[in-house]
Design a protein around this nucleic acid. Sequence first.
DNA 1: CCTCTTTGGGACACGGGAGTCCCAAAAATG
DNA 2: CATTTTTGGGACTCCCGTGTCCCAAAGAGG
Lengths: 188, 188
Amino acid sequence: MSTDEESGTRSRTRRAVLAAAAQTLSRDRSATLADIAYAADVSRSTLHRYFSDRDELVAAVVEDSLRVLEESVAAAAIHEGPAIEALRRLVTALVDVGDRLMFLFGDPRVLDGGGGAVDPQESVVDLVRRGRAEGVFDPELSPRWIEQVLHALVYTGVTEAAEGALPRHGVAALVTRTLEHGIGGVRS
Amino acid sequence: MSTDEESGTRSRTRRAVLAAAAQTLSRDRSATLADIAYAADVSRSTLHRYFSDRDELVAAVVEDSLRVLEESVAAAAIHEGPAIEALRRLVTALVDVGDRLMFLFGDPRVLDGGGGAVDPQESVVDLVRRGRAEGVFDPELSPRWIEQVLHALVYTGVTEAAEGALPRHGVAALVTRTLEHGIGGVRS
DNA sequence: CCTCTTTGGGACACGGGAGTCCCAAAAATG
DNA sequence: CATTTTTGGGACTCCCGTGTCCCAAAGAGG
């Protein structure tokens, strides 16, 4: 669980493979290990040295992506301040880790086990509840639905940006605006 | 292009395979032909008799799904009446063909060639433009973005329903409400 | 009831991805 | 500069999905 102190060149290579795998697999979940190795600028042999199994690699990517995601969300401090402000910070945080998010969405449907949504972020659920309590979220929408919508819009925004249909910097604002007011605009 | 009059038992089998393929592939785009055959309650041999190639099968499913989708959208008559009303009918139409939509989303990203969105529905683009002209859609949101959001929310709604987290009948209304006002509710 | 169609399922070959092993070269480390 | 670590890449086997063929059985249709 703690740092295995594998450090040195190895740690860097592992990170590179992990990142490349996340990115490649997010685009094509059935990408070849050779593809991933190529994207990581590493030979297939090397990849196998770090992750003997394909499953092992995928699992590692999931874990790593989850970690990155959680760090980003934690940094958004969504427990503080008004719900709407927190929501905006949350959206920004999610968009920032777009690549990892994309991967997390597309694969084993991370909610494998059972309960939670894609990310086990209990804090997001709390935020939604808080927003409802403050009266800034539509009380007719269930927390789960709101969370799903949040994910869907972030996903869409990140995808559009990845395809060049949207400038990177505008994504968070656009998602936030749409999330808050829908397509009807502020005066809806 | 017209009906090849292959009818008889054959036509029925073909439909069954197509439907099963759409459903199976929408859940797992890398499903085995054996899986699909099993889902269609048909032997692998039979499947090959109808679609010699995997690509051929996928192409057929895409074409068929597109046809079903277009029929549904056409029935919604989205050119008539106020944009908001038309939008509501459109959402309902899309939700109705949820299975096919799910498939269409997940596979070759039907926009292969180039321009349009997932569905070549020029009419949807028209609707968006009309809505903006009528002032009922946020003018700061691009038509493309609005269309993407529409797709994303429908997709989310259908998925939630498929997982039992939402009652089938409530989906269209929920999606429409969220689409129009976001999570902030009507008084946003 | 007989014939033609459609199906099931076994057997087979092919191809490609996955996983393993090994050795020489490159790079890091002290 | 010498040693150890890390890497690249070839060679090989195994497995599984795919596609093809064939024949006997079930079913449809007149």
